[in-house]
Every structure is written in structure tokens, then in C-alpha cells.
Nucleic acid binder design. Structure first.
Lengths: 143, 143
DNA sequence: TATCAAACAATAATCTTTATCAAACTTTTC
DNA sequence: GAAAAGTTTGATAAAGATTATTGTTTGATA
């Protein structure tokens, strides 16, 4: 307990964010959950330990953890639904500054070694690669 | 004109969906847009050609195009925000039947050849790979 | 311990998506 | 071709996800 508290305190210092009780509970609950829970699911669990907490606080802390680098966003894509109209096999270059998405052909990317089966008998249909980085425009802007 | 109409008609027949004027306009507008427009953006353009169309119709047709295989979903992830709590470098196996997401270690995947620069001077930070396929559970269920 | 910026809870507002349902349109059947 | 059967549409309500606002409380630090 003391150790966990201490490490959370250190983590906050490293990332330049304040230590609060709510924040610590959100962090610990998230760390304890497997997979990729939604904010609502995190909220439900946190609420058991801190009944007065608000959903907005959970959202704010999740965002804060992402911004400060404690956790990472799982998808760099925009929130609303997007579809592919491009028939060619391709992947995406996603700018971490401006979120712009550009297609890149499968060949140009110099692709993944394909396998039919992966761990636990997962049957592969296709790969979808996001290359996260900085687009030329944002490189110029920050130069 | 006649050709385009004809090919849309054929496309609908192939995919077992009815030919309607609204559907055709949504399809043609989407095909004509570069990048990955949001449903709202598609709606805005379609509305210029069919002022009486409703946003719900655009949504319904986008879903129909995805379900019937005319277009593809760009991200297989769930709608709400998700973050990574897993510190190890890893990627994701996403089940196309049940949408379950499982982590897979970078090494187990047998990785991508890394490059620093890609087309147009895009500066690479990291790769994020989604392997789309069928999980063991869903394979059993459909066997 | 007093001060001040940051974080909090509560809640309203916004944005995105889905559901409902009667009317209009497509397809099918004759 | 016209009527029946099945789909799609528009309008709108509702649900779901996220952000903004505001007055209050709390944490860090002098």
C-alpha cells in the first residue's frame, strides 16, 4: 500500500501532475483492468471506491494521463465513424500533431510478414497498420 | 452518366441492396471525396444535390455500404475512447465477428521493417498494427 | 496556517449515432 | 403494367459519448 502510493506519487512528479485521491483511484483502477475499458466502465469501478466521484472527473483524468504520457491513446483516428473508399490495399500515416490521415500503399510501406495464425489460434484476415509520426507540414511549423 | 448509373445498379445487385436515388448520391459523393470524411461531411455534400435528405439516411447508407462490403470500416475499435495501460510494446488482434481486442507482443507478431521517413517526408515515431481476423471463440461458434 | 492555482462535483450543453414509424419508393409477382 | 410485398426514406425523438461551465473544495507551498 505504502509502496503503491509512493510509486503513484513518483509517477505524478515525473509527469508533472498533481497527486489527488480521485486521480490515484482512477489510475489504480485502470491499471488493474485488463483489455481496453471504456470511460464508463472505469467510472463504474471507481465509483465503488469513491462514490461521490463524477464521470467528468474520470474523463478529465483519463485525458490528463494521456496528455502527460502515463497512458497512450489506442486509436489515433478521429472519433466519428470513417470508412475506406480507397480500393487499393493500403495503410495509414497519422500525424500525432494535427491528426491528419494520409494513405500509404502496402508496397511503399514495405510490409509485415504475413501469417495465417497467431497466438491462441487467432485466424488472420488482414493487417491494418497505422504509422504514427509527424507530417511534413507540422515538421515545418515546429522548425 | 449512363455508364455510372449502370455500374451503381450492378454494384447494388452484386451486394443485394436496392437501388435508390439517395443511395446513389451518397455513394457517388463518397467515392468523389478524398481522405476519410465524417458522416457529417458526407451529409453536407449530399444535401447540395438532394436537399431533402436526412442525416439518418446518410448514416444508414454508410452502414449498409460497410455491411454489404462496398466500403470498409477504417477502425475496428469500439466507438468510445480507449487507452493503453500495457507498457510493453505491443499491437492488437481485433476479431471481426465479436470485436474483441487482444494484445499481441511486438516480437510475437514478427514485426514491420522500420523506417525513419516515408512518402512526403513523414517522420515516423512508431507503428500501430491491428491484425483483423477471427478469434478462437468465434471460430468455434461458427464451426 | 493563509494563499492561490488546480481539481472537484454537479449539471448543462454539445456532438454523434441509433431507434421509431408512417409515408414513399423498389422490386416482385402475376 | 398494376397490385402486393418488402425496403427505404424523412422527421424526429432518444440514446450514448464527450466537453464546458460554475461554484466549491482541496493540495502545494510560502
Amino acid at each position: 500500500m505504502v509502496n503503491e502510493s509512493k510509486s503513484f506519487r513518483e509517477l505524478c512528479e515525473e509527469n508533472g501532475i498533481a497527486v489527488t485521491h480521485q486521480r490515484q483511484v482512477v489510475y489504480e483502477v485502470m491499471k488493474s483492468m485488463h483489455g481496453h475499458p471504456s470511460p464508463e466502465e472505469v467510472y463504474a469501478r471507481v465509483k465503488k471506491k469513491v462514490p461521490a466521484i463524477s464521470l467528468a472527473t474520470v474523463y478529465k483524468n483519463i485525458h490528463l494521463f494521456v496528455e502527460s504520457g502515463v497512458f497512450r491513446k489506442m486509436s489515433m483516428h478521429h472519433g466519428s465513424v470513417r470508412v475506406e473508399m480507397n480500393d487499393e490495399p493500403h495503410h495509414h500515416m497519422v500525424c500525432s500533431k494535427c491528426s491528419a490521415i494520409t494513405d500509404i500503399g502496402e508496397k511503399e510501406l514495405g510490409l509485415v510478414p504475413k501469417r495465417d495464425r497467431l497466438a491462441d489460434g487467432f485466424l488472420v484476415e488482414r493487417y491494418s497498420v497505422d504509422v504514427i509520426g509527424v507530417c511534413a507540414k507540422c515538421q515545418r511549423a515546429s522548425a
